[in-house]
């Protein structure tokens, strides 16, 4: 975009925030495309690590942008990336909240909402694909991913336990 990393961070994430239908998980592929491929701010490894750190941190998953921002430009980068990712949509939420009652039953509103469901599903599936490519660089990591997918689908276990097991498996030196 241009040479100033803070401006690039702001521009990319502010734009991305408006297309992130389905929240943080839908925005992962675009973050990856920008941070790893276009701008080459971080390696595949660092991106996968940032995702892992965001997952084990409390709070909204969108916090991964704070990690990317910090990696690019320290504290200022963290602040700018977070503000860019949350600012536009928060402003929109504030404005729409006052008029929501008027159009919540409108046919166009219902069409937009149900029309966006398959789009965000496709985006989140793409996130899983992109992350699997970053994180599963050998067969053992892929086995962990496959197993947790099954466990996550079949049970309602607290994700922290799954992360703990994954972390221990990693520590054991298999991966």
């Amino acid at each position: 975009m241009n040479d100033n990393p803070l401006l690039s961070l702001f521009g990319y994430f502010a734009l991305l925030s408006l297309f992130a239908v389905g929240g943080a998980n839908a925005a992962i592929p675009e973050m990856h495309r920008i941070a790893v491929e276009v701008m080459q701010w971080m390696t595949e490894r660092q991106f996968a690590d940032s995702f892992a750190i965001a997952q084990i941190s409390p709070g909204p998953n969108i916090i991964i942008v704070t990690l990317i921002g910090y990696h690019v430009a320290g504290l200022a980068g963290a602040a700018v990336a977070t503000a860019a990712m949350c600012g536009p949509t928060c402003l929109l939420a504030f404005l729409v909240a006052r008029t929501w009652d008027r159009f919540k039953e409108a046919r166009w509103r219902i069409a937009i909402q149900s029309g966006l469901v398959p789009v965000s599903l496709g985006l989140i599936a793409a996130s899983a694909f992109v992350l699997a490519r970053s994180a599963d660089h050998n067969i053992y990591a892929a086995i962990i991913t496959g197993t947790t997918a099954l466990v996550g689908f079949a049970t309602r276990i607290n994700p922290l336990w799954i992360f703990a097991v994954g972390g221990l498996m990693g520590l054991s030196g298999w991966l």
């Binding site: 996968a48 690590d49 892992a52 991913t145 947790t148 994700p159 994954g166 972390g167 990693g170």
Partner: peptide, 13 residues
């Protein structure tokens, strides 16, 4: 972190 990333990816799937 590698282990956690692999597990978190599974949860996303």
């Amino acid at each position: 972190l590698t282990g956690i990333a692999a597990a978190a990816t599974g949860l996303l799937i």
